[in-house]
Design a protein around this nucleic acid. Structure first.
Lengths: 164, 164
DNA sequence: GGATTGCGGATGTTGGATATCCGGATATAG
DNA sequence: CTATATCCGGATATCCAACATCCGCAATCC
């Protein structure tokens, strides 16, 4: 069970956009360059995040991407679901209806299978954890824990690349 | 992010083994037939569960699989991890060290990335939920919620197939 | 010794994730 | 109005892990 790399990219991008002046935004190419990831593929995820209402895209010259809402109002869960989709990791295939002991009338299997119930509950707990954290929290964590050197390098790059 | 079907199979198998007399066990072929799943592939998962100490395998004529411990002492988490492995769904690729703002001295990136921290915590919550539930609980859930018809069909099949 | 069963390696198959490209639409600058 | 920069979405190619099967070997019981 492996999560798409796009989730990691998207969370880093969202954290970065939280410190970009909203009226300027940042192009997909710049975002990819800053994080050292393939631009063409990152663009796909950015489009998905835009469709999900997490980012806003500004077309045309001088355009780019920006957060659709204040960073404190965007949860990590939203970003994860926008990239990964909202399908469940565990999918019940109704094994209980198969085999020699299955095959009874449909009414025999009305409620959710007990095994599926447990797995669904665990996934709900997972999502609940991600719902508690916002992009603003991620940014705060970075500002608190990142070394001064790294913060200066990031600020310098943005100064230089976003002057126009 | 999709979980292997083997997890669902394994949980159903474990629940079934919880009601099989331990001194008899059940062969891989019978377990596959009962659940209507491909036998050769189920066998692979059974072997993994045996290596993980969840099941016990009895070779030779009259052999088969049985629970290695009482059903109340086996957690759902153990079964899931035996089949899925213990790798994390989210793997941090240290994006923060890439790109123009990365590349500083290694000491700049000592602690865990804040984004990875959040994802790891969510996975911990997920596993914690699965650790709370035992195979005995799954069996209890089945006995409480399954229709009488389905329970009779299962008992009848086992009576017939395990007479030897 | 023969039959049954689990064990594990080798192998083939398939589906999804990864990655790229290109034509079209849109908005801004001059 | 034209040129440029940018996002959008479909089509495509590639790659890898999950899925699935098979076969020879080892262990056990009758």
């Amino acid at each position: 069970m492996r999560m798409s790399d796009g989730v990691e990219w998207a969370l880093h991008v969202a954290s970065l956009l939280a410190v970009v002046p909203p009226e300027k935004g940042m192009t997909a190419a710049k975002l990819a360059e800053f994080h050292g990831v393939p631009g063409a593929y990152l663009a796909k995820h950015l489009q998905a995040l835009t469709r999900a209402g997490v980012f806003e895209a500004v077309p045309g010259r001088g355009g780019g991407y920006r957060l659709a809402r204040p960073a404190a109002d965007v949860t990590v869960l939203e970003v994860v679901e926008a990239v990964e989709g909202r399908t469940r990791a565990f999918e019940c295939s109704e094994i209980r209806q198969r085999g020699p002991a299955g095959g009874g009338p449909k009414s025999d299997y009305r409620g959710v299978c007990g095994i599926a119930r447990v797995m669904y509950d665990a996934e709900a707990a997972y999502r609940e954890e991600l719902r508690k954290v916002t992009i603003a929290d991620l940014l705060g964590s970075f500002l608190r824990s990142a070394s001064p050197g790294a913060q200066v390098r990031a600020a310098t790059w943005m100064q230089k690349e976003m002057s126009s």
